[in-house]
């Protein structure tokens, strides 16, 4: 579904991604792991063009996305993104956060958008908070609203950039539960996370990055039970 071919990206002199090749299939849950600075967040952000790659290609459904010729807004419409720091719109209520893009981008009618938004908020367990403002919510609730907001665009892929890293430990569970239920429903997901428990349980494939390269990939069992690379072993010892 998404195919990355020899993708490279630098920030100034710093090479963050080096020759990344990766394919993500429909309904697959891919978890990216690696030490901080390994390039996993940048890789995720390249997928929806929040960062523009220096070289290489990204194709979606076998169609190469030419950054200069394609309307990237249309590409992004189909990719939901969930951020580490939620990035909810603080001046809008929970419901307004969720209906903003469907109304503004997809030109849905307000009634239609509200109806779908409420069903999504029910799904993430926050229908009763629809008229609250983000600052009245806990971190876990904020992140669940952010997930609902991304789902409101009916994306074909969901990208998660360390969705639980900014949460208090007791709030991590509720967000992971929401993500698990998404995975169960067949959503294609790419997740950057340090939650190895989630990776073991939900991932179809785990990808280990180090210094901007994919150094190892495999099923959770392969990676966690029998890692082959020295750096993977070291990394897993540190986080597990």
């Amino acid at each position: 579904m998404i195919k990355l071919k020899s993708l490279s990206k630098s920030f100034g002199d710093l090479k963050v991604l080096k020759d990344i090749n990766l394919e993500i299939n429909k309904s697959e849950v891919v978890v990216l792991i690696g030490a901080s600075g390994s390039g996993k967040s940048t890789l995720l952000r390249c997928m929806n063009f929040l960062e523009i790659l220096d070289s290489g290609t990204i194709s979606i459904d076998d169609e190469i996305i030419d950054v200069k010729r394609t309307n990237l807004n249309h590409v992004r419409e189909n990719m939901g993104m969930v951020f580490q720091h939620f990035n909810l719109f603080p001046h809008l209520s929970v419901l307004q956060n969720v209906i903003e893009a469907p109304i503004q981008v997809k030109r849905q009618s307000k009634e239609e958008a509200i109806q779908f938004a409420m069903s999504l908020l029910t799904r993430v367990g926050l229908a009763d908070k629809a008229n609250y403002f983000p600052e009245q919510l806990s971190g876990g609730q904020k992140q669940r609203v952010a997930i609902a907001r991304a789902l409101a665009m009916n994306p074909r892929v969901m990208l998660f950039d360390e969705p639980t890293s900014a949460l208090d430990p007791e709030l991590v569970g509720e967000v992971l539960e929401t993500m698990k239920s998404l995975a169960k429903d067949g959503m294609t997901m790419v997740v950057v996370t340090h939650e190895m428990g989630f990776a073991k349980e939900v991932a179809d494939r785990v990808i280990m990055l180090a210094d901007g390269k994919i150094i190892e990939e495999g099923t959770p069992v392969e990676i966690f039970k029998a890692p082959k690379q020295e750096r993977t072993i070291k990394f897993l010892q540190q986080v597990l």
Binding site: L50, N73, R76, G80, N87, L88, F89, H91, V105
Partner: peptide, 24 residues
């Protein structure tokens, strides 16, 4: 992150400016 969130939802730069950034 506000601009990124707007863009990631498929909103254009100007729409994100007008609807998200400027009111705040």
């Amino acid at each position: 992150g506000q601009m990124e969130a707007g863009r990631s939802l498929g909103m254009t730069y100007f729409k994100t400016m007008r609807r998200i950034i400027l009111p705040q």
